[in-house]
């Protein structure tokens, strides 16, 4: 049993490696993943006060969200469109392994993207990061969660722009109610409740805690567990959707 799991995890890594080679360098969406959160951010921060300890974690969460969902739109939809997905379907692997492989490639992409953002912005704003290890864990787990979300949406979509549009339905509302710009405590209770059902909330919170050493470690742990749960749910639903769409 454990052996089967390790085997499928290894194969998921091979799929991820292949995805990186085939899709990750030809994506114009590379820029989309970076530009969009930046634009949102600049527009927003022009209107209010800027506290780097609040702003930088939010920015990183947004970059991961936009970056991974954009790259998954390319990696999942093109694999279906060109028919190379057949190659994965005929192999002795499960649908879960396929979507996990896709998500793992996204995870590495999110990780690299956030480090590219985090280091210069920390240097420029002069903050010192309270707990680098916890930041790294929060970044990795957030990247996994948003990649699995991207896989789920793209498993449904037939075209890359369709996947981007469907993602936007989730990304933009999340960007505004998950505490990226305003702490959720300052929002009406109805919105707070909704925010608690959305993964971005937990990602932002975990990053704020670990970057700024603000609230309790206990909250951080809850955030990480919540993100892992989201990932699992997205992976399971994503593999079911992919299976249905390929019938």
């Amino acid at each position: 049993m454990a052996k089967t799991w390790i085997k499928s995890l290894i194969k998921a890594f091979y799929i991820a490696k292949k995805d990186a080679k085939v899709y990750y360098f030809k994506a114009p969406n590379f820029t989309y993943g970076l530009l969009m959160p930046f634009a949102l951010f600049i527009a927003f921060s022009l209107s209010g006060q800027i506290n780097p300890l609040l702003i930088i974690p939010g920015l990183i969460s947004l970059v991961i969200l936009f970056g991974t969902t954009s790259i998954e739109a390319v990696a999942v939809v093109l694999e279906k469109q060109t028919g190379t997905i057949e190659r994965l379907l005929i192999a002795p692997i499960s649908f879960f392994t396929i979507v996990l492989g896709k998500a793992l490639a996204g995870l590495f992409f999110g990780l690299i993207l956030s480090i590219i953002i985090l280091i210069p912005s920390a240097i420029i704003s002069g903050i010192s990061i309270a707990n680098p290890l916890l930041v790294l864990i929060a970044i990795i787990i957030s990247s996994l969660t948003f990649s699995t979300l991207g896989v789920l949406v793209s498993a449904y979509a037939k075209w890359v722009p369709e996947a981007q549009m469907l993602s936007n339905f989730l990304r933009f509302p999340m960007a505004f109610i998950c505490g990226v710009f305003l702490p959720i405590e300052n929002m009406p209770i109805q919105l707070v409740i909704i925010a608690r059902f959305l993964p971005l909330t937990y990602s932002v919170e975990a990053l704020r805690i670990s970057v700024g050493n603000s609230i309790s470690i206990f909250t951080y742990l809850i955030d990480i567990v919540a993100l892992i749960l989201f990932s699992f749910i997205f992976l399971i639903i994503g593999s079911k959707i992919l299976q249905k769409r390929l019938e």
Binding site: K11, Y14, T82, E86, P92
Partner: peptide, 20 residues
Amino acid sequence: NVYDEMSAWENLIFAAELYD
């Protein structure tokens, strides 16, 4: 349905990886 973006070699090795 081989991958256009990869070489013949990479395609074969990827198949070998998937099939243990």
